[in-house]
């Protein structure tokens, strides 16, 4: 059985946030949701400042606190290491979001249709249709409606329904079809490496052997599948350069 993992090379990450964009396009997330999020930190005081970046996907922990606390088993871990949410099971208690030390869970506070980008645009406008080709959003990735994994649950794309939780799926619909997650595929500097860590011949396994990976918030004992190389663990002394401006 494959065991998926991801390596984030902080020495390569340049904070362009293309992964965030790719995730949004692939998974059709609404305005305030960042399944993949890249911190842009500033350290020190002007003029002695230093910038650093920290991509933060779901860590797909082996000892996932969100899986432990879910009262109905909507959040579960597959044998290949991917942690998923079943939106048809979720009761919307949001306990997972509080158990998670990384803050990767996003709740549908309203109907996703009311929370998409560019709601005020007139999609019938000829100027607009010349660009869109007549497609009226919200565009929905058709792969999200299929069932995945041994347990055949509708887990890709997070379900996007009012009152349920969603988060990064490691792009389960792509991975099961032999593709890489959207963020990894897009990264222009190859800072994200994805693959089977149980197979010693995959690029990710070679990466893990060659470098010394560390985990985010190791002290919480979550045993994440996402590893970081280079850089250093973030501290609270770091401040974000800007805060995501999103309407909920």
């Amino acid at each position: 059985m494959a065991k998926y993992g991801m390596v984030v090379d902080l020495e390569r990450c340049q904070g362009c946030r293309a992964c965030m964009e790719a995730c949004k396009v692939e998974n059709n997330t609404t305005e305030s949701m960042f399944w993949m999020y890249v911190f842009r930190f500033e350290e020190g005081t002007y003029p002695d400042t230093k910038m650093s970046f920290l991509p933060r996907p779901c860590q797909h922990c082996d000892n996932a606190p969100c899986v432990k606390v879910c009262p109905v088993g909507a959040r579960y871990k597959r044998e290949d290491g991917i942690v998923l949410t079943d939106p048809d099971r979720c009761i919307g208690c949001r306990y997972c979001s509080l158990a998670c030390p990384y803050g990767v869970n996003y709740f549908n506070y309203q109907k996703p249709q009311d929370a998409y980008y560019a709601l005020g645009i007139d999609w019938e406008d000829p100027d607009v249709t010349s660009v869109t080709g007549g497609v009226v959003p919200p565009y929905k990735n058709p792969d999200h409606d299929l069932l995945y994994g041994e347990e055949q649950r509708r887990t890709a794309g997070g379900g996007h329904a009012k009152g349920v939780m969603e988060k990064c799926t490691f792009c389960v619909h792509r991975v099961e079809n032999g593709m890489l997650p959207a963020c990894v595929e897009t990264c222009p500097t190859n800072a994200l490496v994805f693959g089977d860590v149980s197979d010693p011949d995959t690029p990710i396994s070679r990466y893990v052997r060659a470098r010394e990976p560390w985990h985010l918030l190791e002290e919480t004992g979550t045993e994440p599948s996402v590893m970081y190389v280079g850089g250093k663990p973030p501290t609270l002394a770091l401040t974000e350069i800007e805060r995501p401006k999103a309407r909920v």
């Binding site: 088993g73 579960y76 871990k77 044998e79 041994e150």
Partner: peptide, 8 residues
């Protein structure tokens, strides 16, 4: 023996 499925 499996963590895959958390159903009863």
């Amino acid at each position: 023996d499996t963590v895959a499925n958390s159903d009863p």
